[in-house]
Design a protein around this nucleic acid. Sequence first.
DNA 1: TATTATT
Length: 478
Amino acid sequence: MAAAPGGSAPPAGPRLGFSTADSGVGLSGLNPGPAVPMKDHDAIKLFVGQIPRGLDEQDLKPLFEEFGRIYELTVLKDRLTGLHKGCAFLTYCARDSALKAQSALHEQKTLPGMNRPIQVKPAASEGRGEDRKLFVGMLGKQQGEEDVRRLFQPFGHIEECTVLRSPDGTSKGCAFVKFGSQGEAQAAIQGLHGSRTMAGASSSLVVKLADTDRERALRRMQQMAGQLGAFHPAPLPLGACGAYTTAILQHQAALLAAAQGPGLGPVAAVAAQMQHVAAFSLVAAPLLPAAAANSPPSGGPGTLPGLPAPIGVNGFGPLTPQTNGQPGSDTLYSNGLSPYPAQSPVTDPLQQAYAGMHHYAAAYPSAYAPVSTAFPQQPSALPQQQREGPEGCNLFIYHLPQEFGDAELIQTFLPFGAVVSAKVFVDRATNQSKCFGFVSFDNPTSAQTAIQAMNGFQIGMKRLKVQLKRPKDANRPY
DNA sequence: TATTATT
């Protein structure tokens, strides 16, 4: 960057001057080349260590040119003093040259005056795989590894390709692709992201860097924090759960620390967040009076009966793992009552739904077990995990309260039929609800009934929007 | 605010 104060060295650009490129040094007679060489997109930047301080770029060049044409060679110098730091970055035009240089030189020879052998290896900036690994979304559900490979292959060498699947083997519509280099990965992002829409996908292809291990660890912790918060919706007297949360916190922190080695920043940050969450109190309570003041669309005013005992409540809320991506949980949620539309004289669906909201608003969001816990179905009788119901059975729900989670969604729609799945979408960065979600029933009638009853249902300042999930072809918003 | 999923 900065030229030496002494000014002896010309402030050459980042690349080593190639004025002598035609002097015929290279292997394989490929010299002379263009004055400004291009580097392959799969090129690797190398770190070179244990260089005598007396050697500058021009001195080093011949040594490395033996393995191929050099794209860039930079001796690292102290920012302030310009002093040679004894190491350099080296990028060959071709990936292969770098590999050859690495195997021929790394730890293989010792430069004059050095007491340790030269180091030649991919620079730390090349990442330990993290920056070469892509998350691919919006794939067609029927596309397999081979299809994905075909798609990405033009951009470089694929080291790894995995389509994510549910336990039953069906694709989740996304995949991981690891390239041989950052450059290849970047090229694939440039070339493919948003470039096309795969058959059966609802929007265009997504290609981005995958989460790093660290991000994943953070995310797990946030999820944990969320669960803890859900367990203790009311402001916590410190100590009510102290031992438990502390144990989990420590456990998680230990895991994280072990996983990521030095650099405890994120751990501290998360710990702080969790403290915050522990003190979190549900904002929903004030919503209740508002909701109660507004009668549900088809319910008469003031029809709020004494609430039926919540189904499956055991007082404190079981540590029921959310149904989120629970492998092998092909639970069918049911209200355990006669299936709608057979009207129960005692409880009509809307009242139940309303009770669901009410209880949510009463700030016990996760006090509900999935009803299957209280009314066990015969699990073996159920078909494979079914995230989406048949056509006409899947609802898109918008304007959910921020605090609504999967459990509350289920609770709210249970009265209208057997709920195959219920999912509130969550922002991955913040773990906050995006205030919309999906509910799937096992039959269209339940879905229609739910729309009739719940579309426009006022909650707080907003009204729920409940409609059939947009079929995959129509891409218009609204 | 809008139908996207992270080994």
